[in-house]
């Protein structure tokens, strides 16, 4: 029995699109939700801030889209392992907090040698972290090769303060109390 031409062509079109849809099912499946809006409690400890900072870097901040921790080789953006140590001496006359603040509020002011400019301004859309969220990120960054000292009251050149490094916090270590970051009714 001869199969009509239209059916043969239809079968070919159907099989081809079906095959590509099948290939689409074979790759990793990940649904990306919009970042949750975080409301920070005003009495977060430094240890809490470290945890929140890590969460922000993994989520809303999109930091790990580009940066890595503990990876070497031909990287497109600086690896963050040991960044706390480097931040203290990266730019003469700047403390680690001032340096971290500059990298986020004014990222093109200093480019790490060997890399291209590419870091977005973090307190503006599309990332748009708040001043408090940026302080949490700084707290986390300080733990990468150092000890976190930042508090929510820390002032720097971009949050209406002068360059005043905070005094080391006492008695709070990473992994302390659970931060009470709450998610504000973010729609799916």
């Amino acid at each position: 029995m001869k199969i009509p031409l239209i059916l043969r062509i239809g079968a070919l079109v159907f099989a081809t699109t079906g095959f590509y849809a099948y290939v689409g099912q074979m790759v990793p499946q990940k649904e990306v939700q919009p970042p949750a809006e975080i409301v920070l409690r005003t009495d977060l400890t430094t240890a809490d801030m470290v945890k929140v900072g890590r969460e922000i870097m993994e989520g809303k901040g999109l930091c790990f889209t580009c940066h890595t921790i503990g990876k070497s080789g031909a990287l497109r953006f600086p690896d963050l392992a040991g960044v706390a140590t480097r931040a203290k001496t990266r730019e003469p006359g700047m403390t680690d907090i001032q340096y971290f603040a500059q990298t986020m509020y004014e990222p093109n002011a200093f480019i790490v040698p060997g890399f291209n400019p590419g870091m977005p301004v973090i307190n503006k859309p599309p990332i748009g972290l708040t001043d408090q969220e940026i302080l949490c990120v700084m707290a986390y960054l300080q733990t990468l090769g150092g000890t976190a000292t930042v508090t929510l009251q820390t002032k720097h050149q971009y949050n209406a303060g002068t360059a005043t490094p905070t005094t080391p916090s006492t008695g709070v270590s990473p992994g302390g109390t659970q931060p009470e970051a709450t998610v504000k009714g973010e729609k799916r």
Partner: peptide
Amino acid sequence: QHWHVYGVVRDHSADAFTPTLGFATKVVS
């Protein structure tokens, strides 16, 4: 992703999430 206009107008609709590639390929097919 979750922007109508990237970095300017945010998508607050129920469809603001980015679907899986599997789902996208079904729609394309």
